[in-house]
Simulated scan of single mutants.
Amino acid sequence: MDDDADDVTTQRSTVDDWTRALAESTGSPGGGAGTGVMLAIAASLTSMVAGYTETDHHRRSELANIHARAHSLREAALRLADEDASASQAFGAAFRLEPGPERDDAIHQASVNAAKSSAVLGDRAIDAIADLGWLAANGNPALVADVVVAFGALRAAVSGARTNVSFDLAALTKAGGALEQVREQHPVLWATVERLTAALDQIDGLTAGIDHRAAPTDNV
């Protein structure tokens, strides 16, 4: 690849450059950064649908807040994607160290940092569910297909964050110990995995509620 990995970011690169970097066997960017990009796509579609939606004056302020939050989330998600790519670099570097206490400590710290990075992404994705749900019920009906696509991207973000946090927590057992010990030592991160699992069910329920309108040919 011509570009150095450090020079390829979601905030400065073209889609072509960034996906080319993702396709390389470097691990940075990786699945965690991809999770951030999926969240940015969900936020962008949310913003678009909100911009095309008209409502009565009683809900105008609520709609404006959704629009503003989605706009802000798009920018935050791309930044978090780049932060996750940096965490992935540290994670990979730790595993390349020679076996021994130093390597074990580095893997432990990198795993915790990576889990925290993914957890932040997951929390932001969970926060976005309610706004997209509002648009599913009150948004411009002509854009219901875009809402379903946004739910798909949001689900990918939630699923990616859940898997990454879970995987990183499990990596803490590499130096010995059991998952139950990890759960006791990192209760907040463990609870994040559980909340993300519940969020997947919530997204699936909301999507099912409007899918018949987005894909009417399925009902023929």
Rank of each mutant, 00 (worst) to 15 (best):
V193A: 10
E194A: 09
L169F: 06
Y52H: 12
L179K: 15
N113Q: 15
W18N: 04
S61R: 12
S44D: 15
R60P: 09
A43F: 01
A161W: 04
L169W: 02
A42D: 09
A106I: 04
G139W: 01
V148G: 15
E62P: 07
G27A: 09
M48Q: 11
T26W: 11
D16I: 06
D204V: 06
M38N: 13
I203E: 04
T10M: 08
R162G: 08
D82K: 07
Q181R: 12
L80R: 13
T10G: 08
I107C: 00
A175H: 03
V188Y: 10
E184M: 11
L169T: 12
E62N: 12
T55A: 01
V149Q: 10
A142H: 15
G160L: 01
A81V: 05
M38V: 08
S88K: 02
L206D: 15
S13E: 07
T53A: 03
L39M: 14
L179D: 15
L196Y: 03
A68W: 03
N138T: 04
A161I: 02
A68N: 13
A42G: 11
R195Q: 06
D4T: 11
L73C: 09
Q89G: 15
D105C: 02
H212V: 01
A171I: 10
L73A: 12
V49E: 13
D7Q: 14
D4P: 08
T53N: 02
R20L: 09
A125Q: 00
